[in-house]
């Protein structure tokens, strides 16, 4: 047979194999947390905070960590978005094409992207000590927002970079200024990409343990102020898994399952939104 056909067959097999491997891994993860967590899974897990002796296998749930994680990751995502949107709009609409600042900023963000989250945790902790801030929701939000800032900025930057310059010119030629063009045209054209960036940043933020270990603290209560310490799901999983009691370890898997479901729900909702706004994109 001819070479082309053989090559194509080989690649086809490779691609199918890779796809299957991914699916199997995903399935195994889900199966593990479901099977191991199911016995511990009951309504009180998601409706109650830990009662005395929860970590010894007594009553209660992890509502504190669910709410805490949502507060923390939500706050960090909003904060990171407020900082990163102006950056990427500046890159596209104001900065010169071969601007040194833009190139340097992109490079820095790529480096920051690769920095392990424990380093952000240590950094956040140092900053908090300096300002006399105790481990709290606020400290966690700031640290996690630093962690996800490079991810969000670069992800948005990549989609916004692709927008054809003619689209901006169309807006300018109608008499729009740069700010109007940035918010009414660039943001709308990039909306699906922006939503994706928000989604992956939120996912990264809600799932990270190392950055919140020293900065957010841990508590059995639901925080009522930004300065209260806050529990998070990754740390709750960690603590439960670290107990010698099998029934508490089961709860760790149940918590992992809850975390996965939260991420799943957010993915589905954002897919839906992304689809809604993709219709409007000009190709």
């Amino acid at each position: 047979m001819n070479r082309n056909k053989i090559e194509e067959t080989i690649f086809k097999i490779l691609m199918i194999n890779s796809t299957i491997i991914i699916l199997i891994i995903l399935l195994l993860i889900l199966l593990t947390i479901i099977l191991k967590g199911l016995p511990a899974m009951d309504w009180s897990m998601i409706s109650q905070t830990p009662k005395g002796g929860y970590y010894l296998g007594k009553e209660g749930g992890i509502l504190n960590a669910i709410i805490g994680s949502l507060y923390l990751a939500g706050g960090a995502t909003i904060l990171a978005f407020i900082i990163s949107l102006p950056i990427v709009l500046y890159f596209k609409v104001y900065a010169k094409k071969n601007s040194k600042i833009v190139m340097f900023t992109r490079f820095s963000l790529d480096v920051l992207w690769g920095v392990p989250s424990i380093v952000y945790g240590a950094f956040g902790f140092t900053i908090m000590l300096y300002f006399g801030l105790k481990a709290s929701l606020l400290g966690g939000i700031i640290t996690v927002s630093l962690l996800i800032l490079p991810i969000m900025t670069r992800a948005m930057d990549e989609t916004i970079k692709m927008i054809p310059i003619e689209l901006l010119e169309a807006s300018y030629s109608l008499g729009a200024n740069r700010i109007e063009t940035a918010f009414k045209v660039v943001v709308r054209q990039a909306l699906p990409g922006i939503l994706t960036a928000i989604l992956i940043s939120f996912g990264r933020g809600i799932g990270d343990a190392a950055s919140v270990m020293f900065t957010a603290g841990f508590t059995d209560n639901i925080p009522t102020s930004l300065l209260d310490p806050v529990a998070t799901l990754p740390l709750a999983i960690f603590f439960q898994l670290n107990t010698p009691f099998p029934e508490v370890q089961e709860r760790a898997y149940a918590s992992a399952f809850i975390l996965t479901v939260i991420i799943l729900i957010i993915s589905i909702v954002s897919r839906f939104l992304i689809k809604k706004y993709t219709k409007y994109i000009i190709k």
């Binding site: 003619e166 689209l167 010119e169 169309a170 030629s173 008499g175 909306l191 409007y280 994109i281 000009i282």
Partner: peptide
């Protein structure tokens, strides 16, 4: 912006807004 408002522009490939 006021000058550009005086002119409508059609480009080679149409670019409607999103």
């Amino acid at each position: 912006n006021r000058i550009r408002k005086k002119m409508g522009l059609l480009s080679q490939k149409p670019y409607p807004l999103p």
